[in-house]
């Protein structure tokens, strides 16, 4: 099966938008190639702005353009878009609720060999805490394309978490993306619900096969919109489960797992297995090695679910 990174799908979708909507502008900070606004630049060079290695400035410039009616797509690595420019995102994009789409590549461990300084494992937590910010992490090509189009039509700030790691296509032709609506990938027979986001949807699908061999058949749900989260879907499945599992390529502190627990704790308390990085930095390595080491590979996911089920 063909694999494709969500940053590539983003780059293609954004270039398409450039042709369709004159109001769309793209900004980069010397990562035009890697954060994938190069294709936009090819088709609409007059609407592409490379601000140089100055992410704080880029985010505020994007805010200024949005205040003048533009739909600003600002791109960088997740680390810098959410971390270095946090004050700008919070105070100049979030607070005035401006129409800025922060498209952040190389999220999670997908900055691979670059190591810990480039691996954003806290960005969901940071962006989720900004009032009014929508936080989206697509899991495959089709979902990314639809998400980019949808957020361009949505008025307000959005953080789109993208990856450099190629993934298989998960959703089929009937797929329809809607902000805030989780997607049931597999309806299982065991009273276990897995909620995964981004790259970990694919790892979870593989984990399902391993679990099946041991007679465990959880339901798998793709939570592409971490904020606003699909409360009703979570409650529906959590209410019928012995335990639930959250899966993210992100710290277990403040990310998807926390967002789910915020719902279940008050509405339907349930045991939860938090799969994510455990309050640590990443390191250099291949993606598969990193997933394995930090407990996010299909095998590790399956092992931990079996273990948790036995408790």
């Amino acid at each position: 099966m063909n694999k494709k990174a969500t940053r590539d799908s983003f780059g293609e979708a954004l270039a398409q938008l450039a042709l369709e909507n004159e109001n769309v502008v793209a900004l980069s900070a010397d990562l035009t190639g890697s954060a994938r606004t190069a294709q936009f630049k090819e088709v609409a060079p007059e609407r592409h702005f490379n601000l140089g290695i100055a992410e704080a400035n880029m985010i505020s410039v994007a805010a200024g353009m949005a205040a003048n009616g533009k739909i600003s797509f600002a791109s960088s690595f997740a680390m810098f878009a959410s971390g270095r420019a946090y004050d700008q995102v919070r105070n100049m994009v979030g607070y005035p609720h401006l129409n800025v789409k922060i498209c952040a590549s190389h999220s999670g461990l997908s900055a691979v060999e670059n190591g810990a300084t480039h691996q954003a494992l806290e960005d969901i937590a940071l962006m989720r805490a900004v009032p009014g910010m929508t936080v989206i992490q697509p899991c495959d090509d089709r979902e990314t394309r639809q998400a980019i189009r949808t957020v361009s039509e949505y008025e307000g700030p959005v953080y789109v978490r993208l990856s450099r790691e190629p993934v298989e296509e998960i959703n089929d032709e009937s797929y329809h993306f809607e902000i805030g609506r989780g997607v049931i990938i597999h309806e299982g027979s065991s009273p276990i619900a897995m909620f995964a986001t981004g790259c970990l949807v694919q790892q979870s699908l593989k984990a399902l096969k391993l679990l099946k061999q041991q007679g465990i058949d959880p339901t798998l749900i793709n939570i592409h919109t971490i904020k606003p989260i699909d409360e009703e879907l979570i409650v529906r499945y959590a209410g019928e489960s012995d335990f639930i599992v959250s899966l993210e390529e992100h710290s277990v502190m403040g990310g998807l797992g926390s967002a789910i627990a915020e719902v279940t704790a008050s509405r339907c308390p349930v045991r939860q297995l938090f799969i994510g990085t455990q309050d640590v930095y990443g390191e250099s390595g291949r993606f598969d090695q990193l997933l394995e080491k930090y407990g996010l590979s299909a095998e590790k996911i399956a092992e931990r679910i079996v273990e948790f089920a036995g408790k």
Partner: peptide
Amino acid sequence: DMSTGSLGMGLSAAVGMCLAN
């Protein structure tokens, strides 16, 4: 015309407005 308070950001936003104009 722009939310401000955290210092040092206003000039950047103005750059965005000027580019848009």
